[in-house]
Nucleic acid binder design. Structure first.
Length: 262
DNA sequence: ATGGTGGCGGTGCCA
């Protein structure tokens, strides 16, 4: 069994004790991290390698930054999302690794938030969704298992939101954003959580403000999207809400799935 | 209730 998780940690430096504790406790084979807010040189490499992980980092100062942690060695394929060479924001890293479930391609994705709407940031979000969609066919053509995990900053459907009215007009729930995510599913990808859980109102993000966590006023915006070959191996999935309850928590919590050994 | 939550960086930006 291969356990894969995605977690927007909101700064690896501020979150290091929480992340290390969770890695030891949850012991994912692969962890896809977003918003590390760190360049590669200041990433706490030694502490994470000490837990038995190989590391691939696409870092950036202050903002963004994504990483892949894996118990098996990584071969980096991309450190930026193709399609807009002048875009230097560190929001995408893709690598391959040999797992108990066979060769697996994984990507850690931090899709732009896109607020306010309308505006340049929303336009950038929609272009980013277009670029991600444009990148998928080349991955599908490999006919391999792959998992694209991350903070998509898109609420897929009304049941993934505590209060649709409260989010009306927000970039995370706008029809254009949902359409961009839906196109990924139409290409043949599977939402690992939704595929195995019909129930709504299960969340991966709760705002720091207004006691959202205590009131369970969240949204489900962190997703693991599986290629058909990976979906065939999908055994379990879930959302581990425990890290959100801890002191110094990220505003996101890990989303995970397991793939059966080949 | 003219605040509000948090990270970064040392001021406003970003989420």
């Amino acid at each position: 069994m291969v356990k894969i998780a995605t977690w927007n940690v909101n700064s690896i430096k501020a979150r290091l004790p929480n992340v290390l504790g969770w890695l030891e406790d949850f012991a994912p084979d692969i962890a896809l991290l977003q918003e590390i807010k760190s360049v590669e040189d200041s990433f706490p490499r030694l502490e994470i390698e000490a837990l038995g992980y190989h590391l691939a980092v696409a870092g950036q100062k202050t903002y963004n930054g994504v990483a892949i942690l894996s118990k098996t060695p990584l071969e980096v394929a991309e450190t930026r999302l193709p399609g807009e060479p002048e875009d230097d924001q560190a929001r995408y890293i893709e690598a391959t690794t040999e797992t108990a479930a066979g060769r697996l391609r994984v990507a850690s994705i931090y899709l732009p938030n896109g607020n306010p709407v309308p505006g340049e940031k929303f336009d950038y979000k929609l272009r980013w969704l277009d670029r991600l969609n444009a990148h998928i066919p080349s991955l599908l053509a490999r006919e391999e298992a792959f998992v694209l995990g991350g903070d998509y900053n898109v609420i897929p459907a009304d049941e993934d939101c505590h209060d649709v009215a409260a989010w009306a007009g927000d970039a995370l729930i706008r029809p254009e954003s949902r359409a961009g995510l839906r196109r990924l599913l139409y290409l043949g990808l599977t939402d690992a959580f939704r595929a195995l859980h019909a129930e709504g109102h299960v969340y991966s993000f709760w705002d720091y403000q207004g006691g959202a966590w205590e009131k369970d006023e969240g949204v489900r915006i962190d997703h693991l999207l599986l290629s058909p070959q990976a979906a065939d191996l999908l055994a379990e999935s879930g959302i581990d809400a425990r890290p959100r309850a801890k002191p110094k928590a990220s505003d996101h919590t890990p989303v995970w799935c397991t793939l059966a050994a080949a």
